[in-house]
Design a protein around this nucleic acid. Structure first.
Length: 275
DNA sequence: CTCCTGTCCTGCCGGC
DNA sequence: TGCCGGCAGGACAGGA
């Protein structure tokens, strides 16, 4: 799925047409996403103003003027596109649409339906079951530091790649950016989490920030499903150093990049550069 | 607690 | 051309 950069890119694509705007029309074509979509969604959304749009982890949050917040998640295959008019023919997996007073439509498309649309009272959003368990934002340099990471990894035996993909430790890092960040930091993905030195934790924190920031700059990464709200693909996949590059040569040492399944997920690394 | 596995769902690709 | 297995970017739920 869309990892943090793709969610951030989506948010930025929606904001100009929806933040601060009233929702004048909305349609729901399927209720059976990851969890059932609340039956009162349209009733609560239509006529409400989106007072604020923001991202927390991989969730896009629409804070409405009526005391409710819409929680959106793109799942594994979700994307939003913005259209000037409601298309006469919708695509097969277009599940949700909304039009703001700007006239623009936002259309949620999600073939695998691992995405989610939920409602929460705004006053209780911080304690929502999905949001309350989350660790720090990786781009928040105060909360996500080398010292923090080392303490969060203390006593953990799991592979460092699994650890940085755990939302409780740090949010937003998925399978692609975990491989890329570990490569940049020179850390082997199978290292035991608690074995990382303070210096390595600092390097990893910096690498995660660098990779995520660069990916946001490139409009995210498109492998199969992900598109920007404009319909364009992201560009960061052209900058991958290791992800999906098994058998190619490491840019630094020319050794072959290896693919190995770690915890059921494809992982890519250079066994010479990453120790 | 930590950890590991199974699971939700559709589409695509390669092999036969 | 068709069928089948395997795989895909997330992350919750439940059991050891």
């Amino acid at each position: 799925m869309p990892e943090l950069p793709e969610v951030e890119t989506t948010l930025r694509g929606l904001e100009p047409h929806f933040a601060g705007k009233q929702i004048i029309q909305s349609e729901l074509r399927r209720y059976d996403l990851r969890w059932p979509v609340p039956e009162n969604l349209l009733q609560m959304l239509i006529g409400a103003r989106i007072a604020r749009m923001y991202r927390r982890s991989k969730y896009i949050l629409l804070e409405l003027s009526n005391g409710l917040t819409v929680i959106l998640h793109l799942g594994m295959s979700g994307s939003f596109r913005v259209e000037a008019e409601r298309p006469e023919k919708l695509k097969k997996h277009d599940h949700f649409l909304m039009q703001s007073e700007s006239g623009k439509w936002a259309i949620f498309h999600d073939p695998r339906r691992f995405g989610a649309i939920l409602l929460s009272e705004t006053a209780e959003i911080e304690s929502h079951r999905l949001l309350t368990v989350l660790g720090p934002e990786p781009l928040d340099s105060d909360a996500f530091s080398g010292a923090y990471l080392q303490s969060a990894l203390k006593g953990r035996k799991i592979a460092i790649k699994n650890a940085i993909m755990m939302a409780k430790i740090v949010v937003g890092v998925g399978n692609i950016y975990a491989s890329e960040a570990l490569y940049l930091a020179g850390i082997h993905p199978l290292r035991a989490s608690s074995s990382l030195s303070r210096k390595e934790c600092e390097a990893l924190v910096a690498a995660i920030r660098t990779v995520l920031s660069a990916a946001i700059q490139s409009g995210g990464s498109t492998l199969k499903d992900y598109l920007q709200t404009s319909g364009q693909t992201g560009y960061f996949q052209h900058h991958f150093r290791v992800y999906d590059r098994a058998g190619l040569n490491c840019e630094k040492c020319k050794a072959e990049i290896v693919r190995q399944v770690i915890n059921g997920r494809s992982s890519y690394f250079c066994s010479f550069c990453q120790r």
